[in-house]
Design a protein around this nucleic acid. Structure first.
Length: 421
RNA sequence: GGAAAGGUGGCUGAGUGGCUGAAGGCGAUGGAUUGCUAAUCCGUUGUACGACUACCGUUGUACCGGGGGUUCGAAUCCCCCCCUUUCCGCCA
């Protein structure tokens, strides 16, 4: 969340930023709650100081054998007034926190201002569109013919959007996960984490999924748990309520399945593996100082790109404008793969810098050069998500006979296999 | 799921109603000293929010797993919850 002091001291800038985001938040209401809270605290603290002092004098009186009853009554009355203040303070603070949890992050100064996804600039691209001398097939047809997945049976046991991979398709998932984890741990300096696949409400709030996006999350109410929508949740919150004494930056990578209800996107891009409720993903998460976060964000994006380069896949990097930026992000690059049969770009990675927004929610701090505690900056990005990566491999590497060439870099993880046929 | 014991500062570990924001030890850090890769001595060493400030600091409040209660006053007493460890049960 945003620092309430920052909102207080930069009210106009915050309002302008919210407008750029098309975010409907009432900053004045937040400030009113903050103002009331500060009034209450100031008054209550004077009373409390008085009570503490008087209370101590009672102990003294008892030692001296004097009768403290009159003063006791007096302090009891003070206590009643304090209780009233405390109660109102609790109410106001709960409201204030709730309101703050719904205020999105400030976009970074370098984030382009724009209305929606049409205003997202293309930053760079790599490779080029492949030319086919035959009509490329859709991945769902290829997958069915080659026996890589069985979406009907996945739907039978869980519902549509729960893909079931079979044979070489299942192995391809496993190989891609291993390939990416090995790359990030061995070449890019990340430490691998294998976290819980469910998180509690506190963790889900820390990274910004709750409270606002509850309807996008699966939930296990009986146990107060949520199947994670991304490894970002457990891997970021693992340091919640800590003052990190490790050297920054901390670099983590993790494979997890991801569970998303995809509420509100019903009927959109639903064929095949385009948009599913459960998918595999390798995620990268960084904890940095404010000084290095911008640079580390760029590097993390390059780390994700490296995966695609090694697999020989044509991609582009776009930057999300203020109107399209995610709730918690200050700056974000999306990486999109070219899918020739779809004839469109598919998002496989979203690399975001959150500055101290998540750290403030999750209370993750470090000691700066002056020895003072300060909030870390968090950065994360997919490195990368599997389903659309699989789509791109299948559609780009298909042959006229319906077989699919495996990228060379992947073959060692596939037991030397060269093609799927 | 049942039983027991615990959760105190960076760590360890005292503390059963006021003199405790918290002894002692370790670690860290500043200094002194010593001709040797170390010892000794002295000092400093929690977090958050607010007020004041000559911005070196001063001061108030809160915090001893979380929440609630008793009391003039709670780390300390009571209740609920969470977590950890051990034993039993169940189980991949």
């Amino acid at each position: 969340m945003l620092d309430i002091r920052f909102i207080r001291e930069n009210t106009e800038a915050v309002k302008a930023a919210m407008a750029n985001r098309n975010a409907d938040v009432d900053i004045d209401a937040v400030l009113a709650l903050d103002g009331r809270r500060r009034e209450i605290v100031a008054e209550a603290e004077v009373l409390k100081a008085e009570r503490n002092k008087t209370s101590k004098s009672i102990g003294q009186m008892i030692k001296e054998g004097k009768d403290p009853e009159a003063i006791k009554t007096q302090v009891r009355e003070m206590g009643d007034r304090i209780s009233a203040f405390d109660e109102e303070q609790r109410e106001v603070e709960a409201k204030l926190r709730e309101a703050l949890l719904y205020v999105p992050n400030m976009p970074s100064d370098t984030t382009p201002v724009g209305k929606d996804e049409n205003d997202n600039p293309v930053i760079r691209s790599w490779g080029e569109k492949k030319i086919f001398d035959f009509e490329p097939q859709m991945h769902w047809d290829l997958g069915a013919e080659l026996g890589l997945f069985d979406l009907e049976r996945g739907a039978k046991i869980a519902g549509s959007g729960f893909p079931l991979f079979t044979g070489k398709g299942a192995k391809l998932e496993r190989a891609l996960i291993q390939f990416m984890l090995d790359l990030h741990t061995e070449e890019h300096g990340y430490t691998e984490i294998s976290p819980p696949f469910m998180c509690n409400e506190t963790a889900m709030t820390g990274t910004g999924q709750l409270p606002k996006f509850a309807e996008d999350m699966y939930a296990v109410p009986l146990d107060g748990l949520y199947p994670i929508p991304t490894a970002e949740v457990p891997v970021t919150n693992m340091y919640g309520n800590e003052i990190l004494d490790k050297e920054l930056p901390i670099l983590h990578t993790a494979y997890t399945p991801c569970f998303r209800r995809e509420a509100g996107s019903a009927g959109k891009d639903t064929r095949g593996l385009l948009r599913v409720h459960q998918f595999d993903k390798v995620e990268m998460v960084k904890f940095t100082t404010p000084e290095t976060s911008a640079e580390e964000h760029e590097k993390l994006t390059l780390d994700a790109e490296k995966v695609l380069q090694l697999l020989g896949l044509h991609y582009r990097v776009i930057e999300l404008c203020t109107g399209d930026l995610g709730f918690s992000a200050a700056k974000c690059y999306d990486i999109e793969l070219w899918a020739p049969a779809q004839d469109k770009w598919l998002e496989v990675s979203s690399c975001s810098n959150f500055n101290d927004y998540q750290a403030r929610r999750a209370n993750i701090r470090y000691r700066n050069e002056d020895g003072k505690t300060a909030f870390v900056h968090t950065i994360n990005g997919s490195g990368v998500a599997l389903p659309r990566l699989v789509i791109a491999i299948m559609e780009n590497n298909q042959n006229a006979d319906g077989s699919i060439d495996l990228p060379e870099a992947l073959r060692p993880c596939m037991g030397g296999l060269q093609k799927l046929d």
